[in-house]
Write a protein that binds this DNA or RNA. Structure first.
Length: 486
RNA sequence: GGCGCCAUCGCCAAGUGGUAAGGCAGAGGCCUGCAAAGCCUUUAUCCCCGGUUCGAAUCCGGGUGGCGCCUCCA
């Protein structure tokens, strides 16, 4: 099975062939840290998290780099508004970013560089571009001259004429071409600044990624990614800078994720139609949010709504229910019976290959998760059978199922903690306060009532338990309390 | 205006040439004292019109509708 990846540059799915396998150098554009991250940022982070996880699962030795843009006009503006030092503002939101992404199960990148820690490399590459004649200095600003770089527009599939025709930018008379972009910006009094051959100033936005990726991973990168909105101008400009300065190919595979939409419109700061990760996590559990984000292929648009999250919850709970059932099911030290063998083989011979096939096809998590659902029937069937026979499942079966989900979970970033998470899932939320203890006592009492076939009392107790916020499930293993959804 | 993407069951969503995964919701059945959870069964010919092909949701052309980028943006 070969991994195929959609490359924005070619517009096609291509077989993935890293430059020096098994090593893979991967760089994803992170966020500009001047505010809390929204769900759109979460989607990008989760998408590249899964890509890195799957590449590792497939045997690659991945070095994943994701930067923080910690110096930028927006940071400066925000720090002025709030009267907070820009550096402090940036560090605050880097921390918030790490917390929020961590909640969503996003693993840390191997290297997480800050732009301001690579000032020497940034200045060096700008200098190379000036020396080679690709850039020019005006009044302390340095611009990249797009017309000097043949191939400008190859990623976004536009040429300079197209771009100029549609240009909505205010024309800066000092630029040779209106599309020339800043590599270095001179600082105004009071602004953060670094010394450079062109005077005090700060880097333009695009150059940091060229500098940091080359410094950390070298050139070319195997994979470079980010949101679709970065294709132009950000990534187009990165190509121009890096290929002009370094001489060779900058990136082998460009990967871009689709947007999170609200009512079919892009979620964005400027439209104001965004939800921060924090806001969403007040209402929905992080696993559900992650599951939701992976339920659609990473390149497709994804509509965010309460309805969609509610459905994602129901979907995710199918797995949690299975886990909870397996968790409370006793095991027997015996050979697997017929249906246990059948379901075990189904996992290894059908689901697992289909899962890999889906992931190999441009990281198709939506299809991969779809295949996972087909495992539910046979697996629950084994549990049904064990329940009706009043016995446990074979130890070997439970272990096989456990290792299957452990493996899948490593790739998708779910199911950490094994079957116990199912049990924990349904009892979470209400804590271990006295209402839970009371509910448990009533559940015990209810067992008595049911043994005595006192249905009236049993139902009365169930209502009382419901008052405390729990639904009681009668299982062969005894009553189970489920925290009620409101 | 330029460039690009998308349109599959009530809803969500896979599927890039060979006769439509999966989920949610709904319906019926089983299990259950009743429930809950679970199991089984059940629902599409793929926006419209042409074309290519033995054969197209999948390729080409046109249309309609939606979205994105061209300015900061995951």
């Amino acid at each position: 099975m070969t991994l195929r990846v959609y490359n924005t540059l070619s517009g096609k799915k291509e077989e993935f062939k890293p430059l020096s396998p098994p090593k893979v150098g991967m760089y994803a554009c992170g966020v500009t840290v001047y505010d809390y991250c929204h769900i759109g940022h979460a989607r990008a982070a989760v998408a590249f998290d899964v890509i890195a996880r799957y590449l590792r699962f497939a045997g690659y030795d991945v070095t994943y780099v994701r930067n923080y843009t910690d110096i930028d006009d927006k940071i400066i503006n925000r720090s002025n508004e709030q009267g907070v030092h820009w550096k402090e503002l940036a560090e605050t939101f880097i921390e918030a970013h790490d917390t929020d992404m961590g909640a969503l199960g996003v693993q840390r990148a191997d290297v997480e560089p800050r732009a301001t820690d690579y000032m020497a490399q940034i200045i060096a590459i700008v200098k190379v571009l000036v020396d080679k004649g690709f850039a020019y200095e005006v009044d302390g600003d340095v611009y990249f001259e797009v017309e000097k770089f043949h191939g400008y527009g190859k990623l976004s599939k536009r040429n300079l004429d197209d771009l100029q025709a549609g240009a909505r930018v205010d024309v800066d008379e000092r630029k040779v071409n209106p599309l020339d972009f800043a590599l270095w910006k001179s600082s105004k009094p009071g602004e953060p600044e670094w010394d450079s051959p062109w005077g005090k100033g700060r880097p333009g936005w695009h150059i940091e990624c060229s500098a940091m990726s080359a410094e950390i991973l070298g050139q070319p990168l195997d994979i470079h990614g980010g949101g679709k909105d970065l294709i132009f101008p950000h990534h187009e400009n990165e190509i121009a800078q890096s290929e002009a300065a370094g001489g060779g190919e900058f990136v082998r595979y460009w990967i871009h994720n689709g947007f999170v939409n609200i009512d079919s419109e892009k979620m964005s700061k400027s439209l104001g139609n965004f939800f921060t990760i924090r806001e969403v996590l007040e209402k929905y559990r992080p696993e559900v949010v992650r599951f939701f984000l992976l339920s659609t292929h990473y390149r497709s648009p994804l509509d965010f709504s309460d309805k969609a999250l509610t459905e994602a919850t129901a979907r995710y709970e199918r797995f949690m229910n299975l886990f909870a059932r397996v968790h409370r099911m006793g095991t027997e030290d015996r050979d697997l019976d017929e249906i246990e063998i059948k379901s075990k083989n189904f996992l290894s011979q059908e689901i697992e290959p289909h899962f890999r096939e889906a992931m190999d096809d441009d990281f198709n998590t939506a299809a991969a998760i779809g295949h996972l659902f087909t495992a539910l029937g046979p697996l629950n069937g084994v549990l049904d059978s064990a329940d009706s026979d009043g016995r446990g499942v074979a130890k070997g079966w439970k272990e096989a199922v456990d290792s299957f989900f452990l493996e899948i979970g490593q790739v998708l970033g779910f199911f950490d903690g094994g079957f116990a998470v199912g049990e924990a899932w349904f009892s979470a939320g209400t804590g271990d306060d006295e209402s839970k203890i009371k509910a448990q006592a009533m559940a015990e009492e209810r067992v008595e009532a049911r043994n005595n076939k006192d249905w009236a009392k049993a139902d009365e107790l169930r209502d009382a338990i419901a008052e405390l916020g729990y639904t009681v499930q009668d299982t062969p293993q005894g009553p189970v309390l489920i925290a009620k959804k409101d």
